[in-house]
């Protein structure tokens, strides 16, 4: 049976805009958010460009929530709050609202450890654990360990929105974004929730991210991007019953692992579920404009497709096809495919 899950609200942040329309228009106009990296010296890396959006100062030390979340956690929080507000879910019981997130890499920041480590250097400039134990370790912020937990942003979103339902945080490769959307859709289909926030967010572009890409051999791929998106999902019948605007429908999806055949298998399974022939579909590709958004890519691609459907085309020939496929392939070998349909 095909999925019939309605998308009833969406929010997005990318290098090309902070609304679905802004991002869609910029892509249609051929703009690119990929520019020389700012914020640190990337000249020694083979990748020196990225689609960045964050350059705000670090969170104040006296705001525990902001400190724990880190930049991309805060972005995730922002898009979830915006989408949840737009969907007007206040009438739903909080334990019936779920949250599924594809989370970009959460890692320790040098800034968190540097003061304590630097205060513990021996005469040769090396880190001395003996000195470290003697007291400098206490300079590390007590919330530092929490800032490295991948699920903390989801926990903060549940607090901010007072939602208590079915949830999962999936990490951290590109296909995690598709998995989050699919797990959310299936949670609805199986009756575990009545509405779901499904979101994905890329990790921040840092020297660590560039070094990790170099080590994993993914430097040759699209430059990294920053951004993410959140969607509110509901069973189609429920959404129509409560008069919610239906922006699009998730009709099928699948994930697989293991090389090129995984792409074929995931696509075949997703199309089969959607009961659609493959040739009727197009693949949404935003990487040339927005960079590699990792786990944020799938949700952002869905948002741009929804924005395209909402616009009145100059001529019927310019109208986007009613069906779109979102494909995400992680560098570790995971593949995810979503099939979405314009709401009529």
């Amino acid at each position: 049976m095909p999925l019939r899950v309605a998308i009833t609200a969406a929010a997005v942040r990318t290098a090309l805009g902070s609304t679905p329309d802004e991002v869609w228009q910029a892509i249609q106009a051929g703009h690119s958010g990929i520019r020389p990296i700012v914020g640190f010296d990337a000249s020694g890396f083979s990748v020196t460009e990225a689609a960045q959006i964050w350059r705000e100062p670090d969170a104040p030390e006296d705001d525990p929530a902001l400190r724990i979340l880190g930049p991309h956690g805060r972005l995730l929080d922002a898009v979830c709050l915006e989408a949840h507000g737009a969907a007007r879910l206040e009438t739903l019981a909080r334990e019936r609202v779920g949250l599924f997130v594809g989370m970009g890499m959460v890692d320790s920041s040098v800034d968190d450890l540097a003061p304590a480590a630097l205060a513990s250097r021996d005469d040769a400039g090396q880190l001395s654990l003996e000195r470290f134990f003697a007291g400098p370790y206490r300079q590390i912020h007590p919330l530092w360990p929490l800032s490295m937990l991948n699920n903390v942003a989801a926990g903060q979103i549940a607090i901010d929105l007072d939602i208590r339902g079915d949830n999962a945080v999936l990490a951290a490769d590109a296909d995690a974004g598709v998995r989050a959307l699919l797990e959310g859709a299936r949670s609805l289909q199986e009756g575990h929730a009545d509405a779901v926030l499904a979101a994905g967010v890329a990790g921040r572009v840092t020297p660590a991210l560039l070094a990790r890409r170099a080590l994993s051999g993914s430097e040759a791929e699209a430059p990294p991007g920053e951004g993410g998106a959140a969607l509110v999902l509901e069973r189609e019948d429920d959404a129509r019953r409560r008069g919610a605007p239906i922006l699009g429908l998730i009709r099928g999806g699948a994930t697989a692992f293991g090389g090129e055949q995984a792409v074929t298998r995931a696509m075949q399974a997703a199309f089969e579920e959607a009961e659609r022939p493959i040739e009727a579909l197009r693949v949404q590709v935003d990487r040339d404009h927005l960079g590699d958004l990792g786990p944020g890519a799938a949700a952002v691609s869905v948002v741009t497709a929804l924005a395209g459907w909402r616009r009145v085309p100059p001529s019927p020939a310019d109208r986007p096809p009613r069906w779109t496929t979102v494909l995400a392939a992680g560098s570790a070998g995971g593949v995810g495919v979503l099939v979405i349909e314009e709401a009529v």
Partner: peptide, 24 residues
Amino acid sequence: SPETAPTLLAHHLDARGPVLPVVS
């Protein structure tokens, strides 16, 4: 990276279905 061990385990097992690294 939290997906590293689960995906390598899948590779080690020659398991080719979905891989779900859960981080809660």
